[in-house]
Amino acid sequence: MDFMNPRLPVGDWVNDFLTWFIGAFQWLLDIINFILSGLYEVLYLVFSSPIYLVMIIILAAIAFFAAGWKVALFTLIGFYFVRALDQWDNTMSTLALVIVAVLVALIIAIPLGILAAKVSWVSTVVKPVLDFMQSMPALAYLVPAILMFSIGQTPGAVATIIFALPPGVRLTELAIRQVNTEVVEAGQAFGASSGHILSKIQIPLAMPTIMAGVNQVIMLALSMVVLAGMVGAGGLGGAVVGGIQNVDVPLAVEAGLAVVVIAIFLDRVTAALGRKTPIERARKAAAA
């Protein structure tokens, strides 16, 4: 190799690796594809089958019980507005995709965060991986994702999961580590098992911070939906990408506004759920 003019074919290596991986683990990719697209299809069906007014009322009811009447009112007006922009089906599709991606991301992120908080070598390994995942441009995930899953919802969901996962892990680890060591010691001192300490002391006390992580995961997932549109995930992302390709300003703006409505809805509802954790309720009772 010429030292003055170096060229490392890392991309080729990755490509070779991917080709080998896809060949060797096709069954695994099929399972992932089946689960993700299956979940998406089910959720999309559930969201898009009722008449839109019924769906709006259901969403408003969720908002009301989670966050109160103000957010419920916003939900009513916001989603009615989305329907008026003729983005209803796209919005339900995106909502379904975001929820699938967030659920899977959390199922991975929260246990991983807890493990990282408890086992120091896991933390040491996980940290640089998370840094890598967050700093790698999100678009760069999409190409291998297409290679592995072809186009459709699955590569979009996978790219979204990878991109949205890190804050979930980080904040969970931080949350568990932040729990007052004396309280954990108290659990031990009264003879509690480590499972009991985790479920009855550490997680409840860590909940507000974990919920902040959940909120971050959702927001990052939403920011990925437009990119997911590029790989054929459809939904609002697809509409925005279409708007870019055809220089269709009205379409891009209308789809963009619908994303904003979903974002505000999910943010307010999850933030309110964070305030409904037992420890926050106790704190509120103390302040009253």
Binding site: N180, E182, V183, E185, A186, A189, F190, K200, I201, P204, L205, T277, P278, I279, R281, A282, R283
Partner: peptide, 11 residues
């Protein structure tokens, strides 16, 4: 055991 900073479960 009784702890210096009480170590009660706040929730």
């Amino acid at each position: 055991m009784v702890f210096q900073h009480f170590a009660l479960l706040p929730h």
